[in-house]
């Protein structure tokens, strides 16, 4: 028996669950629960609804490209029963699942890292630009401790020569 995927949210639809809609051009739409069915009837685009897998994939929230995605497929070719093969497959499912969950956790970790650096950059910029809201500019001139120290960057000679050319 096949475990289908919901048209709207891409979650698994187990036998006896959800609802199926067959349009008059014979296209099948499966839904895992009434929530997804209602959203479909409202003509919502799954790519624009934040809680669906399609949205999360599109916006880089989830891992997209990975070799573990190659195993689960819709196989439209009947497989001849083989006891050893079945046993091996069942064993492999466990390991693959473990590998995938580990990679997914790593993906989330890397996403979080970038955010911290970005927040820091934004905070520094805001401090530079709007320190005058906290302290008057005259105070800043008197007390140097409020301004960030200027960073000296060495400019190579070739670059220094090129600059007047731009004007």
């Amino acid at each position: 028996m096949r475990i289908e995927k919901c048209w709207f949210c891409s979650s698994a639809v187990y036998p006896g669950h959800g609802i199926q809609f067959v349009r008059n051009d014979a296209k099948i739409f499966r839904f895992c629960r009434s929530k997804c069915h209602k959203n479909f009837k409202m003509k919502r685009n799954p790519r624009k609804v934040k809680w669906t897998k399609a949205y999360r994939r599109l916006h880089g929230k989830d891992m997209t490209q990975d070799s573990t995605f190659e195993f689960e497929r819709k196989r439209n070719r009947p497989e001849r029963y083989d006891r050893n093969l079945t046993e091996n497959t069942l064993k492999a499912i466990k390991t693959i699942d473990k590998v995938r969950s580990r990679r997914e956790a790593k993906h989330i970790e890397t996403r979080k890292k970038g955010k911290k650096a970005q927040l820091m950059r934004e905070a520094v910029k805001e401090l530079e630009q709007s320190i005058s809201l906290v302290k008057a500019p005259s105070v800043l001139e008197e007390d140097k401790s409020y301004t960030l120290p200027k960073i000296k960057v060495k400019v190579s000679e070739a670059e220094a020569k090129n600059q007047p050319m731009e004007e």
Binding site: C9, K53, E72, N76
Partner: peptide, 20 residues
């Protein structure tokens, strides 16, 4: 292109369908 069942399958971590 509008969302299809194939897009939904791929988004759930499935590969392309294998038709033999």
């Amino acid at each position: 292109a509008p969302h299809t069942q194939l897009d939904a399958d791929i988004a759930s971590g499935m590969g392309m369908p294998d038709n033999g």
